[in-house]
Simulated scan of single mutants.
Amino acid sequence: MEVIVFLPILFFSIVLHEFAHGLAAYRLGDDTAYLSGRLTLNPLHHIDPIGTLAVPALCWLIGMPLFGWAKPVPINPMRMPSPRRDMGKVAFAGPAVNLLLAVVCVLVMKILLVGQAFFSARALEQLFLFLQYGMFINVFLAVFNLIPIPPLDGGRIVTALLPLQAALKYDGFFGRYGMYVVLALILTGAVKYILLPPTMLVVGAFSKFLM
């Protein structure tokens, strides 16, 4: 039953994550995603066989919290005014949207608590379950994507912030081995030790706000 609730929320969240990347790039002058038909909320345009299907299934099988990613939107940084810096902004847009979605979930829960007299206990329980999943999944996605290893968003952000020569070395190494490192972290389960502490810190802060 939980998987039935989890998967639609996860899928919707990662689609919005990729849409945010494309929209940020578009506003910075790169219309590559728009011209390729990827600046859309249609989920069929964002399905990635590994990130959208295989990784969530693997996480479910090995008992990890479900997470994943959608097919990356095509971006051409050379069409932006400041390619390296602007790519950092584009990279940050995805996790920022996930955090925003988590905040929206928390605010709706707060509103429901204030107006709980207008809802049946059963309806309130179901709504809270859905919103709690939405909050946790989006915080988890944001934290996962902020891991500073390319091709994850955190790696792109680090590359944008480092001095040029350091950025070239950093991106050169992880551009070749980064995906293998990420997959190794997932397959060994080590990724949960990286993700759970900051995730629970943020979720804990949200929980205090709801009290």
Rank of each mutant, 00 (worst) to 15 (best):
L39C: 04
L39W: 00
L41E: 00
P43H: 05
H45L: 00
H45M: 03
I47A: 01
I47Y: 01
D48M: 08
P49G: 02
P49T: 00
P49F: 00
I50V: 15
T52S: 15
T52G: 11
L53K: 11
P56E: 10
A57W: 10
L58G: 04
C59P: 03
C59T: 00
W60E: 05
W60S: 08
G68V: 00
G68W: 10
A70S: 15
N76V: 13
P77Q: 04
M78L: 15
M80A: 01
M80Q: 06
S82W: 10
K89F: 13
A91R: 04
A91D: 06
F92W: 05
F92H: 00
A93S: 12
A93T: 14
A96I: 12
N98W: 06
L99I: 13
L99K: 07
L100Q: 04
L100S: 09
L100A: 15
L101G: 08
V103S: 11
V103N: 05
V104S: 14
V104D: 14
V104L: 13
L107P: 06
V108D: 06
K110N: 14
I111T: 14
Q116M: 11
A117K: 05
F118D: 09
F119T: 09
R122I: 02
L127K: 03
F136N: 01
F136G: 00
N138W: 13
N138G: 14
V139Q: 01
V139L: 06
F140Y: 12
A142V: 14
A142M: 09
V143M: 10
F144P: 04
P150S: 01
L152Q: 04
L152D: 01
L152I: 06
D153S: 05
G155W: 02
G155E: 10
R156A: 11
L161N: 09
L162K: 07
Q165G: 07
A166C: 01
A167F: 10
L168D: 09
L168N: 07
K169Q: 08
G172N: 10
R176M: 02
G178H: 08
Y180V: 03
